[in-house]
Computed example of a mutant assay.
Amino acid sequence: MRYVIVGTGNISNTYVAAFKNLPGCELVGCVSRSGRTPKDAPHLECRASLAEIQAPFDAVIITSPNGLHHISAIEAAALGKHVLTEKPLDITMEAMDKMVAACEAAGVQLAVAFQRRTNPDNVAVKKLLEAGALGRIYAADLSCRFWRDQAYYDSGDYRGGWAIDGGGPFIQQASHNIDNYIWFFGMPDQVTSQLGTFAHDIETEDHGAALLRHDSGMIGTIVASTCARPGYPARLEVICEKGTFTMQDDRIHTWNIDGVPNPASAVTPRPDDGARSAAVADTSRHEAVIRDFEQAIASNTRPLADAADGRRATELILRIYGKL
């Protein structure tokens, strides 16, 4: 398939690199508010809107700031183009509902790049949970204690604001991990939270904690922060009927489950240093997301993370923010 990328900031270069490893897939153009191409693809046709792109294309990849995703998705749907968007799907329920409705009406796919779902250990744990192999889940504690300096927030006038970013570390840095939490355990019934702004001159939170209660009785916690210098690996600790296990950066770290062999993969993608930087060194997971996206289009089936998945992740974050 042929793609146009919308947004030419840092993450667009991850996709430029990924396409180099995807024979038959081609990036043919970009849409940029600034008029610049991705730094690693200066040859691309660059326009101010999708409608102005001259090269034929089949789909768009949206890498623009969070609160602008719905605008490009709706424009793409009107042109009959499939949509793969970076996380989050968008930052309000209204915006998400509009983009979902537009894509459904146009009969095009809408998928979210929750690439951590492709990590082998995450896939193995998901299968065990679906099979009930771990027994009843008592508790799950997710820790996303990351670090960003003030220069990160100063690098874009929208960063750390409600209007475009949609919030702080919960909707930005931790949204992939929160998607995994929901993928594993489902949506909670009750949510309470505390948020604060401590180490940065920003509008939104830079640290917070949420307490979650599920209809199964499971108790969950989520901590998201960009205050935790120098930044620590994302960690998930699970207590269940058959024992306990922990995961660190999407890899099984400890496994103490009665009667269930440790399913940790011998080969796992190199972890990104997301705790300290937004840069992505290993594009294999993005490549997997693109391959899955194309397969979903070819077979008219559900992609790995569809619009409903993206909507749930933002919904939970909005509940943590007290906006729902």
Rank of each mutant, 00 (worst) to 15 (best):
G9L: 07
A17E: 13
L22D: 05
P23A: 13
C25N: 14
C30G: 08
R33Q: 12
A41N: 02
A41G: 04
P42F: 06
C46A: 13
S49R: 15
N66T: 11
I71F: 12
S72E: 09
A102R: 03
A105T: 11
G107H: 00
Q109P: 02
L110Q: 05
L110F: 07
V112D: 01
Q115I: 13
E130W: 10
A133Q: 11
R136N: 14
A140C: 09
L142V: 06
A151I: 12
D157N: 15
A163P: 06
G166K: 07
G167S: 03
I171Q: 04
Q173W: 10
T197E: 00
F198A: 11
D201T: 13
E203L: 06
A210V: 10
S216L: 06
S216C: 05
G217F: 09
M218T: 11
I219T: 14
G220K: 10
I222Y: 04
I222E: 07
I222P: 04
A224S: 12
L236I: 09
V238Q: 00
E241A: 10
R251W: 06
I252F: 06
I257G: 05
P261D: 15
V267I: 14
V267H: 12
D272M: 10
D273T: 00
G274K: 04
A275Q: 10
A278V: 12
A279I: 11
S284N: 05
R285S: 13
A288F: 09
R291E: 10
D292Q: 08
E294Y: 04
S299N: 12
G310S: 07
L316F: 04
